[in-house]
Structures are given as structure tokens and as C-alpha cells.
């Protein structure tokens, strides 16, 4: 399996993915800084009222970004193989088709999972550091709070990684890149929309159930892949 993953990364050029992620980190951090400085200091009703508030918003923004990013990866790794007909090459190799597909999905799942965690670590650290200088968000930042947030981020990262497979189920029907990306945006709009400190993903059962659904539906889509006619 590792060999197949390595070949997939070789085909898609891993460095391109890494740059994409780094740019995403930068954009999220800049956006949060903008909110922090423009909205925060002057506003009567600050966006970040407490540390949990701030960490929660950072996490939501990161998950939204990487669920959509995952759909771009899925388009590149899966949909494009079908559209460009290179899937005919791939399925004529002496390799189990399920393994070939699993390698691709594992890349997307792991990529989303790791990026949500790494981005949370980096951007949380950045904003906590900045706040320690300006002191605009008040309230205690305890070890307990950070631990709790850490566990939440892990679960949310797993939820986001599972959910990120859902757009593929829709996109594969018409082998359409735009349907895949559009459905990821739709999922993000439902799950990550943030209203007065509440979003559907605050109830951890919702992202976890959606993740389970994503994994299950993806399994169903590719269960009979060895009998599928190609080209």
C-alpha cells in the first residue's frame, strides 16, 4: 500500500500539495489577524470574547478550508483519472483495483486529518502569542482548556477527514470536478457555518456521524469496482 501511495504522490507531485497547504495556512492566519485587529480592538462587541471562542473560530475556519481543499485533491486524484481516461491504464495493472482506490482515498483522508491538526497547532500558537502581547482577549488560558481543545481538534480533524470524502460520492456520478468541489462547499456551508458562537459541528456527534457516512458511502461506491467497465 505504501508503494502505491508513493506512486500516487509521484504522479501528482507532492511538493505542489505542500505549497497549497502552506498557502492555505497563510491565508487563514491573515484572515484571522484581520478579524482580530480590525474587528476586535475598536468593536463594541468583540468577535473573540474568550480563549475558547477564539480557538473554536480558528478550528472552524481551518476545517472549512481543508474540507474544500480535500475536494480539490479528490478531483485531481480520482475524478481526473476517470475524465482523462488514465484510469484505463491504472486498472490494467496487475494490482487489485480496491487497493489502487484505497491508496488515493487514504492520501486525501490523511492529508485533511494532518492539515487540520497542524494548522490548528500553528495558528493557535500564533494567535495566542499575538494576544499575549496585545492582551485584547482576556480570561484564563489554562492547561486544562488547551487539553480539552486538543482532544476536540483531534476528533474534529477525524470528522473533517471523513466528511471530506462525501463530495466524491456525488462527484463520481458524473465524473465532474465542479460537482465535487461544489458539494464540498455545500457541506462546509451546512456544517461549519458559524452563528453566535454556534455551528452544527459544535455537537461533535454530527461531524463524527458525517465522517462515518462519508467512509461508508465511499466504501459502497467502490465495493464493486473490480466489475466496473472502464472507458
Amino acid at each position: 500500500m505504501w508503494h502505491l501511495i508513493r506512486l500516487e504522490l509521484k504522479k501528482g507531485r507532492l511538493t505542489g500539495y505542500i505549497w497549497g497547504s502552506l498557502i492555505a495556512y497563510g491565508v487563514i492566519a491573515s484572515l484571522l489577524m484581520l478579524i482580530y485587529f480590525v474587528e476586535g480592538i475598536e468593536g463594541a462587541d468583540p468577535v473573540f470574547q474568550s480563549y475558547p471562542d477564539m480557538l473554536f473560530l480558528i478550528d472552524v475556519l481551518i476545517r472549512a478550508t481543508f474540507i474544500i481543499y480535500a475536494s480539490v485533491l479528490l478531483s485531481k486524484l480520482m475524478i481526473n483519472e476517470f475524465r482523462d481516461k488514465t484510469i484505463g491504464l491504472l486498472f490494467a495493472y496487475p494490482i487489485n483495483r480496491k487497493k489502487l482506490i484505497a491508496a488515493k482515498l487514504l492520501i486525501v483522508f490523511t492529508w485533511t486529518f494532518l492539515n487540520v491538526i497542524i494548522a490548528n497547532l500553528l495558528i493557535d500558537a500564533l494567535l495566542i502569542l499575538v494576544n499575549s502581547q496585545t492582551g485584547y482577549v482576556t480570561g484564563p488560558l489554562t492547561g486544562e482548556l488547551l487539553m480539552e481543545h486538543g482532544i476536540n481538534v483531534l476528533m474534529q480533524a477525524f470528522g473533517a477527514a471523513g466528511m471530506s470524502l462525501l463530495p466524491l460520492v456525488l462527484g463520481m456520478r458524473k465524473k465532474s470536478v465542479s460537482a465535487t468541489i461544489a458539494s464540498s462547499i455545500f457541506i462546509v456551508m451546512i456544517v461549519c457555518s458559524h452563528n453566535l458562537g454556534f455551528s452544527l459541528s459544535s455537537i461533535i456527534a454530527i461531524p463524527l456521524s458525517l465522517a462515518a457516512l462519508g467512509i461508508f458511502l465511499t466504501y459502497l461506491s467502490f465495493r464493486n469496482i473490480h466489475q466496473m467497465d472502464v472507458g
Binding site: 484505463g88 486498472f91 490494467a92 466489475q227 467497465d229 472502464v230 472507458g231
Partner: peptide, 9 residues
Amino acid sequence: MKMLLGLVQ
């Protein structure tokens, strides 16, 4: 030919 390659069942 695709049937020979297993691409079409």
C-alpha cells in the same frame, strides 16, 4: 480488446 484486459466485463 478491453475485455481481454479486464477493463470491460
